[in-house]
């Protein structure tokens, strides 16, 4: 079981709140938009989160100023 963060790029304006909350998995690109910190952290357009990040991820989903985030739980590793 792992959690995947889905970022809706039509909405995200790189306000950086999720990067703060999920600093272990996300980093900022030069324009301030979130991108996966680990090279293998991407999967079909989503960012794979470490297991212990679920609570922080829920908070990011709730507080993202552009409502651009969704959390998906998937069965694969």
């Amino acid at each position: 079981m792992s959690a995947e963060l889905e970022i809706d790029w039509t909405r995200c304006q790189g306000r950086g709140l999720c990067i703060e909350l999920l600093a272990a998995d996300l980093t900022s690109d030069p324009w301030g938009y979130p991108s996966a910190r680990r090279a293998d952290g991407h999967q079909s357009g989503t960012v794979i989160l470490a297991e212990d990040q679920r609570e922080a991820a829920n908070e990011a989903v709730k507080m993202c100023p552009l409502s651009a985030l969704k959390l998906r739980t998937s069965a694969h590793q």
Binding site: G14, R15, G16, E20, M63
Partner: peptide, 18 residues
């Protein structure tokens, strides 16, 4: 402040939103 997307003084963007 929050809308600018900057961490402000000691305030993270998350803190500003809260």
């Amino acid at each position: 402040m929050a809308r600018s997307g900057r961490a402000f003084g000691g305030l993270s963007r998350y803190t500003q939103s809260l």
